[in-house]
Design a binder for these strands. Sequence first.
RNA 1: UGCCUCAUGGUGUAAUGGUAGCACAGCAGAUUCUGGAUCUGCUUGUCUAGGUUCGAGUCCUAGUGAGGCAGCCA
Length: 591
Amino acid sequence: MNPSAEAPSPTPSDFIRDVVAADVQAQRYPKIITRFPPEPNGYLHIGHAKSICLNFGIAREFGGTCHLRMDDTNPTKEDVEYVDSIQADVNWLISGFANDHLGLKPKGKKPETQTVNGKTDFHLGAVPVGTPEVEPFYASDYFDQIYQYAVALIRLGKAYVCDMTPEQTDEYRRLGKASPFRDRSIEENLDLFERMKAGEFADGTHTLRAKITVDAPNIWLRDPLIYRIRHAEHHHTGAKWCIYPMYDFAHCLEDYIEGITHSICTLEFEVHRPLYDWILEALELPRPLPHQYEFARLSLSYTVMSKRKLMQLVREGYVSGWDDPRMPTISGIRRRGVPARALRDFAYNIGITKYDGLTEVGVLDHAIRDDLNHVAHRKLAVLRPIKVVLTNLDENYAEELDAVNNPEDPNAGTRKVPFTRELYIESEDFREVPPPKYFRLRPGGEVRLKYGYIIKCEEVVKDAEGNIAELRCTVDLTTKRGGPNEGRKVKGTIHWVSAKHAIDAEVRLYDRLFTVPEPDAEGDFKAHLNPNSLEVITAKCEPSLAQATPEERYQFERLAYFALDKESAPGKLVFNRTITLKDTWAKEAKK
RNA sequence: UGCCUCAUGGUGUAAUGGUAGCACAGCAGAUUCUGGAUCUGCUUGUCUAGGUUCGAGUCCUAGUGAGGCAGCCA
């Protein structure tokens, strides 16, 4: 039983949820429908995780649905490669949380034409969870409908074909000057738009523009472009189209077609909101309109978040891939061993606002430790071994000691760990010349072996170079739990493994990717890469770790949390360090 | 430059005109067969100046600072 899984998820509160709650109260919509609309041009990162938790969280809290939608309106930037990873990341993150609220549609299904209040209307909704043969929504599935909406806008005299070059367009918009093509007749616009679609014109020669105003203070209202020519194959629609709708035109219509009620995006779209509303209102649509709300994207210290920069780290080989455990991608974080629950808790803890701040990674670290502390099975493993020989034990002394699997979870039970004459302990746990307040092993000193006995260091054996070769100690066999002197106190307890039984495992010690809190604040962010962000060592592990599974989380006691890497194989264990334990001693030692 | 948005301890957030609270971080202590976890306590805050009000973090005005937008990207 996983105790943290039983705890009810707290219900967050923020300005967006306040709006949703008010809309529910006022019965403005039959059902709350949100959406998570990534562009399939890269891997999802922890910033997207914030958005996923928000959108799916709202669906969950208000008994609604959150559509997963590929926002693929630009054929030159997107790729199917990313569609799979996006689905996998979303599924992983919402599993056991909001997977009952994931909105998908039947494979290959396009919007249906219906009549609402005497008007032609397009609609495509989600099917119930559990329906077979489903897939995410694709913006590109609506190209036919969006095209028809564009035609409708032309017929209403609210859009026109413009023949200016990109440079001219920019200049006119900057200056607030009207395009010379602004007052073409509806017939001419219809004809030209049809010919744009038919492929008669080259890229960049014509655009369709909404006829709003030429000099509004908000530049996005200065006759914005809504369709451009792109003679390019689209990963989802193939060669069918050579004109593609722009984000501003497409997105609000995608939302409308799917019956989205609350369209939540990040702050940079704030200035686009009037356009979002204008288009939907201009089209005189028969169903309730969706509304856009903006919140601050996540910035995290000691990492970078832009897709461009993450792509650069991958392409230039600074990391092993998009799912390198040092990456802030969802797949990287998952591979590092972070449970989805920890990520969700993190998202809950940071909240949702319009303030553009920098969140300390410490908040993430805390959420990870907090979750792992409850679920991880404790194991004994020695990262940097020194040998200990218990001189008062028989050559073939052997015993099995009882070890608690998880002190935070009584149901996790116990296991046996072998104890023999020769052991490994952590080299950090012995000091020939101990610093102040050091209460681990020292010459002539005593320490407790976790789950075992108190030992005393009698002699330090060194090799020819003066390095410590082994520690010769004596053991007090009366001090085990249940033994006559179990209550005897010593200051330190250390972890250990039986030398004879220890199994080797590759252990990848990950650290933060960058050495400064804001790597992209100025200059080249790569100059701040942490040269020690990965160290690979071979550790000595207790034998039960041979049965480690990828699902299970482990705490190597007194060290850190670990998870099996995907490259691990039977007989060739590979562990990733998810996160270290808090280390108060390290802080103390610095003083 | 124009337009938009934001401003509460070191950081992230709450307080919806009525006692400025929570989390992380930090510090101190208790406890501990993990220097983990747990528990207790502590330090630190409403950007500035005016105004409205019995009362302002909250409303108004001005200023300051920060961010966003000004792609035929999303």
